[in-house]
Amino acid sequence: MSAPEQPSGREGIDMVLHAPARMQIAALLGKVSDMEFARIRDLLKVSDSVLSKHLSALSEAGYVDLRKATAGGRQRTWASLTRDGRRAFATHVAALRAIVDQVPQAAE
């Protein structure tokens, strides 16, 4: 029995990373060892609550590690991309590229 055919290019789309902000978080964390919550928030230009929600979703999926550390008397949250997160991000980007590349062929 053969597996149901999926539209070419849609394989690998990760619904956890589907939200643009989550993809941008993964893209940022993929370039550093870890990054502080406030730094990510400032770069993404989102509110604390919005970033919290996205980081929680990424953390629940096992894509992001969150740790709290006290510095200068304040507790800060640090985020880093896990190995699974890196893999998922790479697969998701590849799937998006496939979609972008596929359309001109279909139009021929």
């Binding site: 643009p20 993809m23 941008q24 893209a27 940022l28 370039k31 770069l43 993404l44 980007v93 998006l96 590229r97 972008v100």
Partner: peptide
């Protein structure tokens, strides 16, 4: 989505 990644980086 891909442009968003490039932009943030």
């Amino acid at each position: 989505a891909l442009d968003g990644v490039d932009d943030i980086q």
